[in-house]
């Protein structure tokens, strides 16, 4: 079999757009997931027993379900409730939804790592729970949870490949599409693998750089 990379250059536009879609769904979904995760963690911290238990059940259910099944539920099952989402929107929302419970666990372990005494002192000075979270807990947590968050981000990057199954035009969908159409499986799949490996490696490097920066900033 011949190895001909011209098929890549011929479809450069489509591939570039697919790359952008991958980046978009990945980063937008992760950002929303981070915010939702923080919200869930905060609710579990401040909320009463019943709320905590409810959220705990919610977290376990989402973590026990494959990402693909959540995608199907939202994209194909949504219309039963009148919710008709575009593929990309569904993709972003599902990534956000799925990742929120993992981020929530990361935030929770971070909150627990800050000594209780510091919170008691703040409480006695009159600081509100929200103020304590924002000004005392989060700044100290950052160094601790950064590795876990970066790790989760790489996992989510790989999950975007699954979006191809619900016809989101991201890298996997587009490149395998080209491969099937033109029987250039080797070239397209190779480029696909390299693309993901690059993304993961770049994310890891950026993550390590960030950890160093935040570390020194807090050390002073």
């Amino acid at each position: 079999m011949t190895f001909d990379l011209s098929i890549i250059t011929a479809n450069a536009d489509a591939i570039w757009n697919a790359f952008l879609v991958t980046i978009y769904t990945w980063l937008a979904g992760s950002l929303l997931g981070l915010m939702a995760g923080l919200l869930i963690a905060a609710l579990m911290l401040f909320g009463g027993r019943p709320l905590q238990r409810l959220l705990r059940v919610f977290i376990e259910l989402v973590r026990g379900t494959p990402f693909l099944v959540i995608l199907f539920l939202v994209y194909y099952g949504g219309p039963s409730f009148g919710v008709r989402l575009g593929a990309i929107t569904a993709g972003v929302l599902c990534i956000a939804f799925y990742s929120s419970v993992y981020f929530a666990e990361i935030f929770r372990s971070g909150f627990a790592a800050v000594p209780r005494g510091q919170l008691e002192a703040g409480e006695c000075l009159g600081l509100g729970r929200l103020q304590l979270m924002w000004r005392v807990q989060l700044p100290q947590m950052l160094v601790l949870i950064l590795p876990a968050i970066v790790n989760m981000l790489t996992i989510l990057c790989k999950e975007t490949a699954v979006l191809s199954i619900i016809t989101v035009p991201e890298l996997t969908a587009v490149l395998t599409g080209i491969g099937t159409r033109t029987f250039t499986f080797i070239e397209t799949l190779l480029v696909l693998c390299i693309a993901y490996l690059l993304l993961i490696e770049v994310t890891s490097r950026v993550g390590r750089w960030l950890e160093r920066r935040v570390g020194t900033y807090l050390q002073r």
């Binding site: 000594p115 005494g117 008691e120 002192a121 703040g122 005392v136 100290q140 807090l218």
Partner: peptide, 9 residues
């Protein structure tokens, strides 16, 4: 408090 509980950051 016994442990001071200052905010280290």
């Amino acid at each position: 408090f016994q442990q001071f509980n200052l905010w280290p950051h």
